[in-house]
Design a binder for these strands. Structure first.
Length: 296
DNA sequence: GCCGGTCAAGGTCTT
DNA sequence: AAGACCTTGACCGGC
């Protein structure tokens, strides 16, 4: 088991997702910003290794506007050795890595242009991991997309678009159950048609499910991961008390996390804490998992 | 320096 | 039809 947090480390004085306005785009600005982002990423990874946080989600903004038409800069060539160096560090320390394109990546949109842009974004994020020479257990997680008033047709479009993706993207792409539209069962249907592994989100599952108890849901998701995908990845969160249903808590609720770990019943997986205070909650999660004998 | 409006991108739900 | 919300930090212009 590895535990981690997404993108931002609030204890460090740097960010790996600095960007700029599209209007200020220039080759120089892009290279300068990207260099700073990768330098900060190295700092974050070192912090993570020092604190036994061995699962990390890299920011989508490492290379600002990389998938935008405005960007003709050969950042791949420019940062080749930097990326290889970071990749070796990840490999040497046994870090598990993911990336999570945001809400604008929608593979099943009825609008071809949106699908094209989405694929470009996936290709960019995949390239970052490819250039780092990460194993196929480093993943790119997306949601099912929209429903557009006809879920079977929408799922069919996802399946058809998936089949057309470049091989390297397919090797890394995983689908995550969401809290309103695509349940675990929907993801399982898509998995059966495509082979795509399911990244399990416990909190989304609490919000939207078909009655599967937590352990059963975990087991169903786990069996969609093949040998070369690595073990199951999951996002962990819980409800923010007194807030709208589906709102993430801003700090880990330790009792709930303990309860959740009991549901694993020996299942091995990597846990990403999708909680606002980032590494602080992740560190608490590490100590709880240690207490319970799930982590050394 | 600090503040607050704004930022590439989508979809769903409410009014 | 238009606006809010999701979720979010950081940019950037205006003071």
């Amino acid at each position: 088991m590895k535990i981690g947090y997404p993108c931002i480390n609030e204890s460090l004085p740097c960010t790996s997702s600095s960007t700029f306005r599209l209007a200020s785009f220039s080759e120089e600005r892009l290279l300068e910003t990207t260099a700073r982002n990768f330098a900060c990423l190295e700092n974050i990874l070192e912090y993570n290794v020092a604190h036994n946080l061995l699962f990390f989600r890299m920011s989508s903004d490492l290379v600002p506007f990389a998938s935008h038409k405005i960007c003709t800069v050969d950042w791949q060539m420019h940062f080749k050795s930097t990326l290889e160096k970071i990749g070796r560090y990840i490999q040497n320390h046994g870090l598990r890595i993911s990336m999570h394109p945001d809400q604008f990546v929608v593979l099943n949109s009825p609008k071809p242009e949106i699908v094209e842009n989405s694929v470009r974004e996936l290709v960019y994020q995949c390239e970052v991991m490819d250039l780092m020479q990460l194993e196929s257990s480093a993943k790119l997680q997306i949601h099912g997309g929209g429903v557009y008033g006809d879920k079977p047709a929408a799922m069919q479009r996802f399946i058809e678009t998936y089949a057309l993706l470049p091989e390297n993207v397919k090797n890394r792409l995983v689908i995550e159950n969401d809290d309103r539209l695509y349940s675990l069962q929907d993801c399982l249907f898509i998995h059966e048609q495509t082979g795509i592994p399911i990244l399990f989100d416990n909190f989304h599952h609490e919000c939207l499910n078909n009655g599967e108890p937590m352990h059963e849901a975990l087991a169903l998701a786990a069996q969609t991961w093949q040998e070369n995908d690595g073990i199951l990845m999951m996002d962990y969160s819980s409800q923010a008390l007194g807030e709208r249903k589906g709102k993430h808590t801003d700090q880990i609720v330790e009792a709930l996390f303990r309860e959740f770990l009991l549901e694993l019943r020996g299942l091995d997986l990597d846990i990403m804490l999708e909680i606002k205070n980032k590494e602080v909650s992740a560190l608490k999660a590490v100590s709880i998992a240690r207490e319970m004998g799930l982590l050394v």
